[in-house]
Design a protein around this nucleic acid. Structure first.
Lengths: 201, 201
DNA sequence: GTCTATATCCAGATAGAC
DNA sequence: GTCTATCTGGATATAGAC
């Protein structure tokens, strides 16, 4: 009996993961409003009504995805923060890593697109707005700290750390979104171009 | 009689301009699907049904705005191309100009947002897709040419001109969109940060 | 040109059988 | 858990009076 309950629990979780994966794909490509519950259900291969066995509403799916996306992004930044490297190497590693991930991981570019869409729309669920408000600043803040530390060591270009962090994040984000819409036709620029913005000589 | 016809024609054009201005505002903030015809009509101060005296459908308004937005962007790039300045000064002028315009013109940031949304969604009208396909590459191409010319003169950093153009355009675009969502709280970075990417020493 | 009223459609969400 | 059928609301677009 306990075994069965565990199995059921696992099946349920698998289903939820399927729905999430399909919904991320659809939302990233079409946005919240153009994506229909039917699209998600068909993508997963289940009846339209069955979605409501797992989620209360379309908005609920969306909010959960937004939360996951922001958390994933922030976790990556905190990981970078904890990495035992000098600041300027953190920066160049982060740039290389992100460009590589943009190039190779569709899931990552979709996550970027989801966040970008949500950030740029006022027509998203109230809960999603709150999450964004709460969580979106962390990358800028952490980047700014790393940059300031590097400037103290004399390895990173002079300039307002916050402004440099802003350029860092918006540039890479812009590239991720660009890439997402031309997957086959384009490759990312040489990391050196971006690294030059931040590192001395 | 001819006078009256002219007056009527002008009134009609004014109405259309009102609708366009309101629609740009709404679409930029909420996207195509979350914007309701009623919202636009209310914004202009007319009855919902009256919109259809001026446009056949919501999609038609959207497609027209997309066209205008892309044309405006491309016209600015072609203007830059024709400016009688050496390449490296074109680049630094363009950066300064764009950062200033982002900071001061809400219409410009809305135009950027509209294009960004449309570019990043597969759920837009077929006609809008065609326009984007046709027109969106021009800035990258012209920038790349200017950069290549500057490299020949030895005033612009080495590197693949196309990649540099990509960084140029995605960075500024990313900043415009960032700014749009935090209008009061943020200012643009020092142009020098971006200029340093492109100019030698 | 402008409005009100309405036809029509579509999608989110629910009910209930299996 | 899963499906089919359906209720319901809301939005586009049209019709027709003023």
């Amino acid at each position: 009996m306990a075994r069965n309950q565990q199995q059921n629990e696992k099946m349920r979780e698998d289903r939820i993961k399927q729905i999430q994966a399909e919904a991320l794909h659809q939302f990233a490509n079409k946005g919240l409003f153009a994506t229909k519950i039917r699209d998600i259900a068909e993508g997963v291969g289940m009846a339209q009504g069955l979605i409501y066995h797992y989620y209360k509403s379309k908005e609920d799916i969306y909010v959960e995805l937004i939360k996951n996306a922001l958390d994933k992004m922030n976790a990556a930044v905190l990981m970078l923060k904890e990495t035992p490297l000098p600041p300027h190497e953190k920066i160049s590693m982060a740039i290389k890593q992100m460009l590589y991930t943009i190039e190779t991981s569709e899931d990552f570019t979709q996550t970027c697109r989801l966040i970008a869409q949500a950030t740029n729309s006022t027509a998203i669920p109230e809960d999603a707005k709150k999450l964004i408000e709460e969580k979106r600043d962390l990358p800028y803040q952490e980047l700014a700290k790393i940059i300031a530390a590097g400037q103290k060591e004399g390895t990173i270009t002079a300039g307002d750390p916050k402004e440099l962090a802003l350029v860092f994040w918006t540039s890479l984000n812009g590239l991720a979104i660009y890439k997402a819409t031309r997957r086959e036709h384009t490759s990312m620029p040489d990391p050196g171009i971006l690294i030059n913005i931040f590192l001395k000589e």
